[in-house]
Amino acid sequence: MDIKDIQNLIKFVSKAEVSEVKYKTKDFEITIKTPLGGCETNYMPQQAVYHTAPQQQQMAPAAANAPAAPATTETVADDSKLVTIKSPMIGTFYRKPAPDKDIFVNVGDEVSVGKVVCVIEAMKLFNQIESEISGKIVKVLVDDATPVEYDQPLFLVDPS
C-alpha cells in the first residue's frame, strides 16, 4: 500500500464518520481512529454554548454597545473575500520542514499555486501541503505542532 492509498483511506474514513477502521493484509496493517464517530459532534455544541453564554451575559449589563455590532459585521465582510487552505488529511501540522529550518510562510507572505505552505505528519510520513491558490497569507489558523483533522482550515489567503 503506497502513500496515496493511505491518504485515500484516511479521506474515506473521515467522510464516512466512523470512529475506527482496521485494515489488515498479509504484509500490512493499519488502524485509523477518529473522533468523528459521534463524540466530536456532541462535544462541539457544548463548547460553543459555554463560550457564547458568558459573552452574552457580559454584553447585557453593558447596554449592548452599538459600535460592537458594526465591528463584527466588518470582520465578516472582510473574511468573505478570503480563501481558506484546508488540511487534506488527518495528522500533525508543522510550519517548518525541520526544527532547525525556517517557517514555510508567514502572515503577509505571497504564495503561488504549488508553493509549499506547511507539512502534515501522518503515520510517520511528512506530507508537504501546497497552496492551491495565489495570494497573500492573511492568517495562520493552526498552531505549530498541533493535530489537525481532514478539511480543517489551516490558512486564510487574500487572492486579490
Rank of each mutant, 00 (worst) to 15 (best):
Q152M: 14
E17G: 05
Y94S: 03
I6C: 10
G38F: 11
P45M: 03
I103D: 08
D144S: 03
N127Q: 09
I120Q: 01
M44L: 14
I85M: 07
K81A: 12
N42G: 09
S160R: 08
K124R: 07
T52Y: 07
A145E: 12
V49E: 00
E29Q: 07
K4E: 15
V49C: 04
V18C: 11
G108C: 09
I103R: 07
G37E: 09
G135W: 08
T52S: 06
T73W: 10
F12I: 04
N127C: 11
A98Q: 11
P159W: 07
E121S: 11
A48T: 06
A62M: 15
F93L: 05
G38K: 07
L82N: 04
V138R: 05
D151A: 08
K15R: 05
Q7Y: 06
M89S: 01
S80A: 07
I10E: 02
P54Q: 14
D5W: 12
A71I: 15
P67K: 04
Q47T: 05
T75C: 15
K33P: 01
L141M: 08
V107H: 00
F104N: 02
Y50C: 00
T31S: 03
Q128W: 11
S134P: 13
F155Q: 01
F93N: 06
V148T: 06
Y50N: 00
P99H: 06
V13M: 01
I6N: 05
T25D: 14
Q46N: 09
K115F: 11
G135K: 05
D2K: 13
H51Q: 04
T34W: 03
K139M: 07
N127G: 07
A53T: 14
I32T: 05
P153V: 03
N42A: 10
V116T: 15
G114S: 14
C118R: 00
D2I: 13
K136A: 06
Q7L: 13
K22C: 04
E40K: 09
K86R: 04
D158S: 03
T73Y: 13
K136I: 12
I6V: 15
A68D: 13
L156S: 06
L9N: 02
T146W: 08
N106L: 08
Q128N: 14
E40H: 03
P153K: 01
